[in-house]
């Protein structure tokens, strides 16, 4: 939205990285396996904002003093990209066959906003949120471009007993590379992405050191890199014990398929109050509802 005919372009949300031809700085074996995902019907990118209805405004309000924001970037082909404003899902847009998306939101008051972008695949899996703070300027449209969302990553049987490594699959921008970092950089490696944006890789520490390992992945396109994904834990040689508060199902307290204000309301109701053993609001099972539980909720937030 361009109210006063002024347009401001911000290209600051970029992550420049230097990418070696094959960055194997440790003993990590990354094998890329052909992956043929089920194609989904493509749709024309149509940026839409979902206005809320059923409300009214009173008071002395000047509606000319509003701002807008337009975001351009790359997710993965045919993703549905959701825009969260201060944690509330306010708009969505479909990415094209190259993974490009454009999403706009108008009617913003002046001030500081925490925006989040997340791309959802047709099977409901989603990328980690890409969060940034922006201060839209009143009467103008703020453009933010060159956004590269983190890759969608799904771990397959990463916690199976007797496993030797982690199988990863997911989606990212076609032509991108997937950088895998294990145990905070002890091992690094790069997997390549197919033309349709899919990838699949097995991560095996060559020394077969038994125990738990942690890996993160991120996408690299040219000199641009995405933020890293969330931690993915996998085990070599032994099974992981069951741990509280490590899944999105845990954070979805009311089982409505979303982690949102309702779940936060339940947490805030029980916050620092005595709670029954086994109550679902105690996400990390430490016997009380504290900021730690709220942190877990914020991590799995879908809005």
């Amino acid at each position: 939205m361009n109210i006063l005919g002024r347009t401001i372009t911000v290209c600051a949300v970029m992550f420049f990285v230097s990418v070696p031809a094959f960055a194997a700085t440790g003993s990590l074996d990354v094998r890329v396996v052909p992956f043929s995902p089920t194609p989904t019907p493509s749709s024309t990118p149509t940026p839409t904002a979902s206005p809320l209805s059923g409300g009214s405004v009173s008071g002395d309000v000047s509606w000319s003093r509003i701002a807008a924001i337009e975001l351009n970037g790359v997710a993965f082909p045919r993703a549905t990209v959701h825009l969260l404003k201060d944690g509330v899902d306010v708009a969505r847009s479909d990415a094209d066959d190259e993974g490009r998306f454009r999403i706009a939101l108008s009617g913003l008051a002046g001030g500081s906003y925490l925006f989040g972008l997340t791309a959802v695949a047709n099977d409901g899996t989603r990328t980690d949120p890409y969060s940034f703070v922006a201060i839209p300027i009143l009467g103008s449209t703020t453009h933010i471009s060159n956004i590269l969302l983190p890759p969608l990553v799904v771990a397959e049987d990463s916690q199976a007993a007797g496993g030797t490594g982690a199988w990863l699959r997911g989606w990212t921008a076609p032509g991108a590379q997937i950088e895998v970092t294990v145990d905070d950089g002890v091992w690094q490696g790069i997997a390549f992405v197919h033309n349709d944006g899919s990838y699949r890789a097995e991560v095996i520490p060559n020394d077969q050191r038994s125990g738990e390992h942690v890996l993160r992945v991120r996408a690299i396109v040219g000199r641009m890199g995405s933020p890293s994904s969330r931690e993915i834990r996998f085990v070599v040689g032994e099974a992981l014990p069951s741990v509280c508060g490590t899944g999105v199902d845990t954070a979805d307290i009311n089982d409505d398929g979303r982690v949102d204000l309702v779940d936060f309301s339940i947490l805030s109701f029980w916050y620092e109050k005595p709670i029954d053993a086994g109550a679902r609001a105690d996400l990390n099972c430490d016997g009380s509802v504290t900021l730690a539980d709220v942190s877990i909720l914020a991590f799995f937030w879908t809005g």
């Binding site: 989040g116 949120p129 940034f132 709220v294």
Partner: peptide
């Protein structure tokens, strides 16, 4: 309080 989706260093300058 909490920040849904988290706050990353590269995109949050003195929030």
């Amino acid at each position: 309080g909490a920040i849904p989706g988290g706050l990353t260093p590269a995109v949050a300058v003195n929030a």
